[in-house]
């Protein structure tokens, strides 16, 4: 279905930017948000410089989307932060920032987006999880816990929002060379890749492929699912 109205969080770089470009190539109108300006320049793209953990700014973003588009067909909760650290050495503030960004922000975006999504004939929500959930890696406790919460949220949202024809799914990327993992030792990431069924680094295109599957009109029976890349889980 071309010509959708799509909202993508964390749209400035990495997976988010790849999703923006993919949807624009498909003929969609895309709203993106991130803390910094976007490098994407396209007549069908509107970028908002917004901190997804700031409720008032997010509410204003939705007012603007409503004004410009009246409806939404797709919400992709991509914005996320990671921190590689032992539980004992992780400051409370870091843990709160991770939960705020990875759990509470997708909750707020979903809550507000439902008002616009329920008019769509093929409404979709896609959340970005991580293979850190099934792998239960040491040093990623709070990050993996936040993504685990997001997966549970995804499954329950699928049940609550099914009455409106809205599907809600998640994709869990395996290691990709993006800014999110810049602080993680390469040897640790390589060990994760070597433990996968498919032993290669993933690319943003691999994530886009799964998201694209969720977004298809033919995927209206696919909801409450989490798909991991590389055979994890």
């Amino acid at each position: 279905m071309a010509g959708r109205h799509v909202l993508i969080t964390g749209a400035t770089r990495g997976i988010g930017e790849a999703l923006v470009r993919h949807c624009l190539d498909a003929g969609d109108s895309v709203f993106g948000c991130g803390r910094t300006p976007s490098a994407v320049s396209h007549p069908q793209y509107t970028h908002f410089c917004v901190d997804v953990t700031a409720p008032a700014a997010v509410a204003q973003l939705f007012e603007d989307v409503r004004t410009q588009a009246a409806t939404l067909d797709v919400l992709i909760n991509n914005a996320g932060v990671a921190s590689m650290n032992a539980i004992v050495l992780t400051p409370d503030e870091t843990a709160r920032r991770i939960v705020d960004t990875n759990v509470l922000a997708p909750f707020t975006f979903t809550r507000l987006a439902v008002r616009l999504l329920r008019r769509s004939p093929a409404a979709r929500i896609v959340n970005l999880s991580s293979v850190a959930v099934p792998l239960r890696l040491e040093g990623e406790a709070i990050y993996a816990a936040s993504k685990s919460a997001l997966e549970t949220f995804t499954r329950i949202a699928a049940r609550e929002l099914g009455q409106f024809g809205i599907t809600c799914n998640a994709v869990g990327p395996s290691p990709i060379r993006t800014a999110l993992v810049a602080g993680v030792p390469d040897a640790k990431l390589q060990a994760m890749v070597d433990a996968q069924a498919v032993r290669r680094w993933a690319t943003t295109a691999d994530v886009v492929n799964v998201v694209d599957f969720f977004l298809r009109p033919e995927s209206s029976m696919i909801t409450g699912q989490v798909v991991y890349l590389g055979g994890a889980g």
């Binding site: 300006p37 976007s38 320049s41 908002f48 410089c49 007012e63 004004t67």
Partner: peptide
């Protein structure tokens, strides 16, 4: 196009 929120149209 990048659009700061301050430039957004205000609802009535």
């Amino acid at each position: 196009m990048s659009q700061p929120l301050s430039a957004s149209p205000q609802p009535p």
